[in-house]
Design a protein around this nucleic acid. Structure first.
Lengths: 231, 231
DNA sequence: CTGACTTTGTGCGCGCGTTCACAAGCGCGT
DNA sequence: ACGCGCTTGTGAACGCGCGCACAAAGTCAG
């Protein structure tokens, strides 16, 4: 959200009919997509915004507004065609031509990510594993052979997504390597603030941060109930 | 952010001087805390908002406003006292009395989370591992013995945080178990929409969603550069 | 063919979060 | 002791996103 937002608004072509889907909407599209897959396997041909919103855990108005941002593909009085909507969202997310995903760092977390089946849920899957530790090179994890990080330029193709699962100390170095190899979308699991040049999208997932946020809420609730008991 | 926000505003005691720290600020406090630890180890006694903001990857104005929400602990003309600020933020996050963290599901991801050192970075650490698979019970991972999920009520104490790292199909069931045992803060890694009763805070981390968001940005950038090349 | 019901699409108001810019406050050099 | 420069804290404006509520639109029954 920090440097990526300013890259998002850097365009306004006159012939462009769709005015750049809002970031908040993009973040929910994968949720809709997953809910749609479940509904499709249950045999539903169409869904109302109400039902889909329920399945995705959002409000129905929000859902309709989100979908309206990528064009109107619903039929009034009926709802949305499930398969059609799946195609539209997949197209919007760019999931039809699977861009390769390169994971750097096969420690505990990297191993788990490589073997995490949830990635492949109709979408993206990891294509290459890299590590700086030569003793790990050659190891086969989840059907993929670990390569050395020096070979990174050879395994990265244009449009690749890089995933950093290294210790924090090595994260910036690996990040620079990825950027140098042409990667413009990076997902960082290391607990470090990374700096990337403009034009590179960077998202971070910090597990300890999530726990600390929950700790805050727990702390607040405890203080509240204590205050309530005193009063 | 969805059902938790309405629980947040359910309080307005007259004597309360600090009007409930905004959610967005809470999400950044762990970042500041980590940056402060690094600065402290570098020997810094004080930090200016500019320097700390740089280290945390945010704007300096935002940082100051965030810190102002938990009382004014800076000295004008000098900056913030590092150790004092660490204490203040830790107190706000409730990190001094370490509430226990219970992890359910020791598959690939659960194993990685258990062994993930990043958790213990001056804050929270996982205290118990549970699984529904009896063949895994008794196994020792990262110094902890895996217990059966039926023993959950015994290992959960008031104020515990629950972490769900099970397959999606079991997530709701485990969630209900946690809630039934008195857990009111849950972190969900399973790719499923969970429903919890009011008063329970639920955060979710979905790895495939993150990748799909990046895929969208990559797709958009590719489309843009293609359009630019054509024009 | 018509009318009534269902569901989408969206215009508007509101609240939150971010940013700018500046006044207030504190230390320090002289 | 006194002003000078640095940094904090905050008031105000802006923009985004959310939710409500309704009109447009399409389907289905008769």
């Amino acid at each position: 959200m920090d440097p990526s937002s300013l890259a998002t608004k850097a365009l306004r072509a006159p012939g462009r009919r769709r005015a750049s889907v809002p970031e908040a909407t993009v973040a929910r599209l994968p949720l809709y997509l997953r809910a749609l897959h479940v509904l499709a396997e249950d045999g539903h041909r169409t869904v109302s915004s109400e039902a889909l919103a329920e399945a995705a855990g959002v409000g129905s108005a929000k859902l309709r507004k989100d979908l309206s941002h990528l064009g109107s593909y619903g039929t009034r009085g009926v709802g949305y065609d499930v398969t059609n909507l799946v195609e539209q969202i997949s197209a919007e997310l760019g999931l039809e031509h699977r861009c390769s995903v390169v994971l750097v760092g096969v420690g505990n977390l990297g191993r788990a990510l490589a073997g995490y089946g949830g990635f492949a849920s109709r979408g993206l899957a990891i294509d290459a594993l890299l590590d700086a530790d030569r003793s790990r090179v050659g190891e086969v994890i989840a059907g993929l052979t670990v390569q050395h990080v020096d070979d990174l330029p050879q395994v990265v193709s244009t449009g690749s997504i890089g995933v950093i699962a290294t210790p924090g100390a090595a994260a910036q170095e690996v990040c620079d390597l990825l950027v140098g190899a042409g990667v413009t979308s990076i997902l960082n699991f290391a607990p470090t603030v990374l700096t990337v040049p403009e034009g590179v999208d960077l998202r971070k997932v910090d597990l300890s941060v999530e726990l600390q946020i929950l700790s805050f809420h727990e702390h607040r609730k405890a203080a509240l109930s204590a205050a309530g008991a005193t009063a």
